[in-house]
């Protein structure tokens, strides 16, 4: 990939969102585990640019053939960019949940909130526990 933001430190929530931190910005998406659970994604409702969220707010909605699921803000912040490609190609969320299927970029309001999130190792264990 041209951009290497995916190489920056990545954190995870218990609701299966991922957060990749690059400076004061955080790119957000849902994990492969979540995408597999959802099945075929047919629609993504993204937040509006400029809107601010508090950690835990409903920020986006991802719809599969079967159901709609909320995506929560993993950290507080203002939306500075959204992945407009998902409008025409929601299947990117299934194809590449960790990369091209990203949802939006937040300007982080409080970096301390990142400390409450899981790192990759902890998240992998969390998923294994949840699946068993």
């Amino acid at each position: 990939m041209a951009e290497d933001w995916t190489m920056h430190p990545r954190y995870y929530t218990r609701e299966h969102e991922w957060v990749t931190v690059h400076g004061e910005l955080a790119t957000i998406g849902i994990t492969k585990f979540a995408a597999e659970q959802l099945g075929d994604v047919v629609f993504v409702e993204l937040p509006e640019k400029g809107k601010s969220f508090t950690r835990g707010d409903d920020m986006a909605v991802v719809e599969s053939v079967k159901a709609a699921s909320d995506v929560y803000a993993p950290v507080s912040g203002e939306v500075v960019d959204v992945n407009g490609e998902l409008e025409g190609a929601p299947e990117r969320v299934n194809e590449a949940p960790d990369a091209d299927g990203w949802f939006c970029v937040l300007k982080i309001a409080d970096a301390d909130e990142l400390k409450t999130l899981m790192d990759e190792e902890a998240y992998t264990k969390f998923c294994a526990d949840e699946a068993s």
Partner: peptide, 12 residues
């Protein structure tokens, strides 16, 4: 079973 491995869309 709500779906099998291929998923709802493929099954449909």
């Amino acid at each position: 079973p709500v779906q099998y491995r291929e998923g709802v869309r493929a099954e449909h």
